[in-house]
Structure formats: C-alpha cells, structure tokens
C-alpha cells in the first residue's frame, strides 16, 4: 500500500522533472516534492503513527525515493548548465580567417643567413670567427699579402682610396694578416665581411659586396686538406654532394693558387646559360699560403704552412636564392627583403 504511494509519487515527480523547461520550473518541482513542506516531508510526518517495524521499512523507502529524486533533479540541472554554456560559447564565434595581430614577422638579410650558416659550420670544425675593419691600411690590404706597390695584381682590384692614403679593403684577406698576428700558429680562422671595389654598378656588378675569408695554418696542411674543407663547405651550403674542381689561379698571397669551380647546380654539368655552357661555375679563389705572407706576419714557413680561401658571400646568396640583380641586396627595398 505505502509502496504504491511512493511509486506513484516517484514516477509522477520524475515526469515533472523531465518536463521542466527551466531551472525555475525544476526548483518548483524540488520544493513540491523535497521541500520542507513537500510531499516527502508530509509522508515522513505521518510516520509517527506507524509501528517501529513499519517505520523502519517506510523510512528506507522514503530515503530511497528522496535520493533517487535528488539525483534526477541534479542530472536535469546539469543538462541545463551544459546547454547554457554551449549557448554562451556559441555566441563567441570568431572568424579565424581574419588576419593575425601583432607585428608581422621580420626577416634577416639573405647574406646574414648564409653567413651565419657558414660561420656555424666552420666553428664546428674548430675555426675562430674574426672581424676586421672596413677601412684598412695599404700595407695590410696589399703589401702584407705579397702585393707590393706597382705589382700588376693591384689592377685586379679597383681600389677606393681615401684622402688620408688609406683604403677601403678590396677583399677580406687583410684579416688573414690580422689573424696571424693575433692568434699565432697553429690557427684556423674565418673572417666574413664587407669589401669594396671601385666598379660601376649594374645587375651583376657592385662596388660593395661580401666575402668570407678562411685560413688554416698548421704543421702539415696539404692541397688535399684544402679540397676536403672546400667540399665540406660547399656540400653544406648547397645541401647536397657537390662536385668541385681546382684549376690554376693567380693570387699573390697563395702559392700554388687555385680557382675552385663547382659543377653547375642548374644544369648538373650539361651546360646552360648560367655556367656559360661550360658546366662549371667559378666560385672561390684559394691556395696554399705563400711563404712570404707567413713570414711577414712573423710565422716561420719552414715550420708552418697553411691554406687560405676567399668565398664570395654575395655571389653565394645570389646562387642560393636565384637572385638575378645584385643591386637588390643593398637596395633596402622591403618588398625584396621580406622574402627571406
């Protein structure tokens, strides 16, 4: 009898809970059923008239009904919360295809990028990175490199002279001289930097460009070692195994002196306009250090020898990024520079 009462109450209440459309309606159901004056309270008041045995039985039923309904109420309430949250978040819709905010990315100059890579590579092989001044003495730029006054090799480099009689360095090679004096033998050094030649500017000629000088002086340094370093360097820069060849080249501060060519990366050696159909691209001058150059910097050539090379960073950057106009590099046009 009493069981039926509870059953009816419970099922009726569950229907009302399910039918409630708002938190307020749900609260009304709670007050009606579970409230202080609600139906369950009323039943529990009536329990005084029951025997102890019956009271225990009804009490258990009462608790069961109460817990069941409370859980149903909570579950329904959670549904409302979830729906409310979903509605609130839905209102926060944004269009993620709109542009990003904050400063857009900046970029490094292409020569900086290449230069840093080469610096890292050489540092990993035990080379020190040295800096030298852009305004140099005639002695460091020429004489100390075995190019005395009136030497025809001075024609190979059109020099910017200063009124003071000094000059803008025509190559990074004077840093060899500074490096030998500063570090003493044995040494491994590179020196990237800006150099100057008094030349008319056009798409392939600049009066200001970048080189990277390298030098190694030790007890036993051979042409084979030089080839090894150059191959390692170029394979790293071009990210593939490159084929190189050495041929005679004349630079007064090296003996023997070489021009190093790489097999044309555009045509793979078959011949194309970039390599003037030769299959090879002239890339860097190098050689074993001329004994007089060592001697002038206080190093005994009977005891020490070495190699030196000069890499055209500007040219390398142009090859790497297929830049066809050298003037872009120092033109300051962000439409160009943003691309790196």
């Amino acid at each position: 009898m009493i069981e039926q009462t509870f059953e009816r109450l419970e099922s009726r209440s569950r229907e009302r809970i399910a039918a409630a459309m708002s938190r307020e309606e749900l609260e009304a159901v709670r007050v009606d059923v579970l409230g202080r004056k609600g139906e369950l309270a009323r039943i529990s008041k009536e329990m005084g008239s029951l025997t102890a045995e019956e009271r225990a039985r009804v009490g258990k039923l009462l608790n069961g009904a109460k817990q069941g309904l409370e859980a149903a109420l909570e579950a329904r309430k959670a549904e409302f919360d979830r729906a409310a949250l979903a509605a609130r978040l839905d209102a926060e819709w944004v269009d993620l295809t709109l542009p990003a905010t904050g400063a857009p990315r900046g970029s490094l100059h292409p020569i900086t990028i290449i230069q840093s890579e080469i610096e890292d590579l050489f540092v990993s092989m035990g080379f020190t990175v040295l800096d030298g001044p852009e305004v140099e003495t005639e002695y460091n730029n020429f004489d100390a490199l075995n190019i005395p006054p009136d030497h025809p090799a001075r024609d190979m480099q059109d020099t910017f002279w200063l009124k003071s009689g000094q000059l803008l360095r025509t190559h990074t090679s004077p840093v060899q001289v500074r490096g030998m004096q500063k570090l003493g033998p044995p040494l491994r050094m590179i020196a990237p930097g800006r150099v100057f030649r008094n030349e008319e500017v056009d798409a392939s000629h600049e009066h200001t460009f970048y080189q990277l000088e390298g030098m190694m002086v030790d007890r036993e340094v051979s042409v084979g070692n030089l080839i090894y370093f150059m191959k390692t360097l170029l394979s790293s820069i071009f990210r593939k195994d490159v084929t190189v060849r050495l041929r005679p080249g004349y630079f007064p501060f090296v003996e023997p002196g070489f021009e190093l060519d790489i097999e044309c990366l555009i045509c793979g050696g078959a011949g194309c306009p970039v390599c003037k159909q030769s299959g090879w691209v002239e890339l860097l001058p190098c050689g074993l250090v001329q004994p007089n150059v060592l001697r002038m910097s206080g190093i005994d050539p009977e005891e020490w020898n070495g190699f030196a090379f000069g890499l055209g960073l500007t040219r390398l950057a142009m090859m790497r990024y297929a830049i066809d106009d050298i003037r872009l590099l120092q033109g300051g046009d962000l439409r160009f520079l943003h691309q790196f």
Binding site: S107, L168, T208, L329
Partner: peptide, 10 residues
C-alpha cells in the same frame, strides 16, 4: 619581433 634587416652602402 617583426623587423627586417637591410644592408645600406657605406
């Protein structure tokens, strides 16, 4: 930080 590197002449 959004700055682009330029190289200018000396």
């Amino acid at each position: 930080r959004g700055y682009t590197e330029v190289y200018n002449y000396s």
